[in-house]
Design a protein around this nucleic acid. Structure first.
Lengths: 337, 337
DNA sequence: CAGGATATTGCAACGCTGTGCAATTGATGC
DNA sequence: GCATCAATTGCACAGCGTTGCAATATCCTG
């Protein structure tokens, strides 16, 4: 019972540690500051006292002084979407490795939530904000930048000056998808998307459509609902029931593709790739499973994440504000080679 | 060019706003504090000035005073695992609704990362810490609690005093799984798990094994590797190649179950549920897809999340520190009824 | 051992906001 | 117009850590 048993232990500050160690508060601070000048002797005393008291530097106070909290905010619609989760995961890993800490703000796809998320970013004096999904009002983005934040937008090239852009070459990939389907002998193509209407999905759609037009191929389009798998499933029910059903489909998302595939196989008894060729986008883990083996485009998530880390590491803004990443085709078994 | 174009705008503080609005700093503070006394007139002046300057309350300073930052830390192994993602998503949603903000700390399954995550929690004076995966050193947990944090451990009932526990009734479910397989006419059972060895997985394993023993049924066990899907797939290759292969399997995780299922179907040409009955755990979204239709146990993620929110809302610790949630069976098509 | 260079240390001010307390303002009643 | 009471407002301090500056201690050299 030697331990103080006040129900709510007064928070332990550097003062307490200094007192116990018999040094000044500055010494304590310097002990926990990289590159500060402290003699090994006092450092040892301080560490011992800190250990005994359970002292941990208050990053709120530290952030107050430095005008940067060490927090990076990631704004994302929902973490359950595998591709978004992959981006957040990879980015978080990189940022943690460089000593930052990640605050996740989910918007559930509602625009008003994006704005309030941006405000949280400002409230916590985040070092940077990464927008994975949702289109934030450009005025707020400007405010963030004026406050010295780095802002990085992933896969959405709005016409805003200031933020960094990380883009995947949707157009090139969509065009290639069309070409691949044509080469596989498909005569009637399908474009399957959702009603979400995010910039990158739209980019894939339009690029695919123009490519198909240039090739003189017929294209049927389905946009059935907002949710990934369900949109693909319903799209399949719509398109495959028609008298002349498509024999090659490009789905703008793996989730959509898998929904499409399941319905094609289970409800329409089609075989892939014999009766139907199918291409997805993102290369989420499920796409590689034995049951699906979906041919798709891989987004170089890891590379994107490490690029983001590099951008944030750089003190002064880098030269080129927008960086493109290729989406590479992953050949599996839903397309005839 | 009326705009000030200093490259780095000095951060805008309440002082600046007060100056512009012609009031005291306290007035600004009170304008942004719920329940404080401000006349409508000055509030309007302050709001106008704040808007013009792009002022946002500094939550770091606010947290410094209140000894609570409004941040809740969630410690999780990886976000790409669908079930973990679901928990984080649901919890985040609840917490954001009550005005908190979520900091995600990923550990990639490495124990040393758990400790450093706990330290971040302390550094940022988090209001609470939620441990979704990984077993934190109990000394650090104690420190967190001493610092006034709420600590909630999900699905791991270590013998530590202090934190709240949120548990799913693994034993009941695993026992039921055994019973269901028996009733479906299975004679030779399989238990498929991973080498991860987390408390909840072990609980499911042992409960299933004892139930099988009591029923007098033979059980083969496979623990093949750490990763979900891969572990299931390899487990299937191990077990189904034997001369007397099992005809009913309980997989401690949906990911494992789906790997098992794919290999059973694709590599061993088995039909479910005719040749093989299969039960999973978690009810991740993919389990409900047409291509799988996996019978599994649903973890009541949403209910757990709202319970967590309630715990954190309560000022003084609630009475019962551990709460159990039932895992309900979801009948689909991988088991004969 | 003196002299000077260098490494440590403490002081005090600063960053930003919340809040108790006292003073001021405004409103109300007669 | 004056007393009384409630509503606002401003002052000044607290909360915690960092850092420039000056003072002190330590070390090296001759």
């Amino acid at each position: 019972m030697a331990k103080k048993s006040k129900t709510k232990k007064a928070s332990v500050s550097a003062n307490k540690v200094a007192e116990l160690a018999g040094v000044s508060r500055s010494a304590v601070s310097r002990t926990f500051t990289d590159g500060a000048s402290v003699s090994p002797k006092t450092r040892a005393k301080v560490m011992a006292a800190a250990e005994k008291l359970g002292y941990h530097v208050n990053h709120l106070a530290r952030g107050l002084i430095h005008h940067r909290s060490g927090i990076v905010c990631i704004i994302v619609a929902e973490l359950e979407a595998p591709h978004q989760a992959a981006i957040v995961e990879a980015t978080t890993r990189e940022l943690q490795a460089m000593g930052k800490v990640v605050m996740v703000l989910t918007t559930a796809g509602r625009p008003e939530n994006v704005a309030s998320a941006l405000r949280q970013t400002l409230n916590y004096r985040a070092d940077a904000t990464i927008v994975v999904s949702g289109s934030p009002p450009s005025s707020l983005i400007e405010t963030c930048i004026e406050h010295g934040q780095r802002v990085i937008l992933i896969n959405r090239d709005d016409a805003i000056k200031g933020p960094h852009f990380v883009l995947v070459e949707n157009e090139v990939a969509a065009k290639e998808a069309c070409l691949i389907l044509k080469r596989a002998g498909c005569r009637h193509l399908a474009l399957v998307s959702s009603t979400a209407g995010t910039p990158s999905l739209i980019a894939r759609e339009t690029a695919f459509l123009t490519a198909a037009e240039q090739s003189g191929l017929k294209v049927s389009v389905a946009r059935a609902g907002p949710t990934g798998y369900g949109a693909g499933a319903d799209g399949a029910r719509q398109l495959l029931a028609a008298s002349d059903r498509p024999d090659g489909a490009f789905c703008v998302t793996d989730l959509i593709a898998l929904g499409f595939l399941d319905v094609a196989r289970v409800e329409f008894r089609l075989r892939l790739p014999e009766d139907l060729c199918l291409i997805g986008f993102d290369d989420i883990p499920v796409a590689g499973w034995l049951g699906y083996d979906l041919t798709t485009f891989r987004q170089p998530v890891r590379e994107m994440a490490s690029h983001i880390a590099k951008v944030l590491e750089d003190e002064d803004g880098m030269e080129n504000l927008t960086t493109h990443f290729p989406a590479q085709i992953v050949w599996r078994k839903t397309v005839r080679p």
